[in-house]
């Protein structure tokens, strides 16, 4: 090392708007994640197993149009769920925990960036990354099925494509709050990753055990929740066993309080607690 005999030079460029800076965080997360071997490997494997085979089979086999039931069942498949949980665990594990462990959270919060902006950037980065699995391939599948259909009702098929867009977004949005919350309560990304996976896994086991006594317990299963919320998004009838109020309440509990927890954790870190 050693210093070059150069002086300090000022910078006179124009600054970007404050409320757009969270996009820098989101952009950085996407770039960093797609360079990660584990994430990339699971994304490719999952895309091939979950999406590419159905895309080929369903678009090659004779079909009259794209139906909401077909897409709902495709997105409610167990393999889709497993790969999604694994990818969420991989993506979210270090999003907050690493910033807390390395103290780089101090640098974020000393910038012209509110805690809300920081959180929004992390959430958006995770959303975009997870949507590489939950949104883009299902959209490709639905479009492929639509363009190869034998029937002429394209309007109905494109409605399902639009619903698939919403369902893909929702699939990512549903899991990320828990991933971020677990990442915010530990400094170790391994714990956060395993914790996120185990959280959903344990919920499924608990739901399976208690469903023996009452079918209402099935709503505790994230797989069932995802299936039922997709049913709503695709405008299909919910099963008679499903209590809509409880469904709404559990979805709320798994999405809003975890994000509030992350917000509070970051606020506390900001003042050095």
């Amino acid at each position: 090392m050693g210093l070059n005999p150069i002086g300090y030079k000022p910078w006179n460029g124009k600054r970007t708007e404050h409320n757009r800076r969270f996009l820098v965080i989101a952009d950085s997360i996407l770039r960093q994640k797609i360079k990660g071997i584990w994430f990339l490997g699971m994304l490719i494997l999952g895309t091939f197993i979950v999406h590419v085979l159905p895309l080929i089979l369903r678009s090659m086999s004779p079909h009259e149009g794209l139906s909401a039931i077909m897409m709902r069942d495709y997105l409610g498949d167990g393999l889709f769920f497993i790969f999604e949980v694994i990818l969420v665990a991989l993506v979210c594990s270090d999003l907050i925990s690493e910033d807390v462990r390395s103290n780089s959270i101090t640098l974020y919060l000393s910038r012209a960036l509110r805690v809300e902006g920081y959180l929004l950037g992390k959430w958006l980065g995770a959303m975009i990354t997870i949507c590489l699995f939950t949104l883009i391939p299902p959209l490709a599948v639905s479009i492929a099925i639509t363009v190869t259909q034998s029937g002429s009702d394209y309007l109905s098929s494109f409605t399902v494509v639009g619903q698939t867009f919403l369902a893909g977004l929702w699939s990512a949005a549903f899991f990320i709050p828990i991933g971020l919350a677990i990442s915010s309560i530990t400094r170790k990304k391994t714990y956060a990753g395993v914790g996120t996976f185990m959280f959903f896994f344990i919920l499924m086991i608990v739901a399976t055990i208690f469903t023996e006594f009452s079918t209402g317990w099935a709503l505790l299963s994230p797989l069932e929740l995802l299936y039922d919320t997709h049913t709503v998004i695709y405008g299909l009838e919910l099963s008679a066993d499903v209590n809509q109020a409880i469904l709404g309440a559990i979805v709320f509990i798994l999405t809003v309080p975890p994000l509030l927890l992350v917000y509070l954790r970051i606020m506390r870190k900001g003042v050095g607690k």
Binding site: G13, V24, A112
Partner: peptide
Amino acid sequence: TYFGRLSGMTKED
């Protein structure tokens, strides 16, 4: 570069 961008600099700057 990252923290420069978070401080309002464009990527090009």
